[in-house]
Amino acid sequence: MLNDLLELYRWTIPAGILFAGLLSLLGTQLAARDRAMQTVCVSQGAMLGVLLALGLSQTLTHDDPSSHTFPTLLSFLLALISFGFTNFLVDHSSGSKNAIFAAVFALLLSLGYLISAVFPALESHMAQVYFGDLATLSEFDSKLTLALAAFGLASFAFLWKPITDQSFELAIFGRNASRHRLNVKVSLFNFFTLATLCFSVQFLGFLFTISCLFLPTTILTFSGQKTLASHLSSSLLVAMMGALTGFIASLQNTRLPTVPSIVICITFFGLLVVPATGGLRSFLPRTRQEG
């Protein structure tokens, strides 16, 4: 029985594993740039685009709802608008940027619910886009996901040093950071991030995307790891192991939903790493040297 399922999902399982790994690496950099809340916001914008496109396609043009082109374009457009709008607000406000992101997220969430009310046929799609289900990916979608994940991971393998340097400069110097040094590189990173988020939200779901982005890196900050390489490799491993075991657990027990099972497994593997690397010490009072 399990062998049949493994054969059935021979493309989907590696696609899910590799994409979880890619998202975990991307998440380390977004968290380092203090952009986690903005990412949640932008992902919600991408989700809104997918829902709007599906609703318009089904209701107005009667296009094939399985076509990905229109949802992909509209999700990218709305993610881009969400990204630009939140950046604009942050740049022109002296208040808390996380409060701005939370407010925009609430607005986008409401708009998503409104769209699903206007297009009643979207209710099942809304749950699908929110919680995702790797098991419903077609073979073509799985191969596409696998190819993009492989490309993304290869890009990270070549560029992890300059990307981390960007993150460091942005985090430490903030608005004072060297613009000549960063402008083009940051724009490329932002484009790559937006494209990955839109694809991930559309094909793998909002919950899978946000969990793989931020669960591994957040849990591992409590570990005793001291080097960048160990944090990045552990994040990758925890996300990929979690995706593999969560998927197989949901195949073995059909009552277990795929993505929540993956999320629980990522958390489990992350929590295994913390004591294994002496991370429990981080809960003890720390002394800092100054001066």
């Binding site: 380390t28 080097t227 960048l228």
Partner: peptide
């Protein structure tokens, strides 16, 4: 511009990722 080294004032000293001083120089 790429041959101008600029050290601005620090806005923040916390960084999410664990970095050694060698990591910072290496990246």
């Amino acid at each position: 511009h790429q041959r101008v080294g600029y050290l601005p004032q620090l806005q923040n000293t916390d960084f999410h990722l664990p970095l050694t001083l060698r990591d910072i120089l290496d990246t």
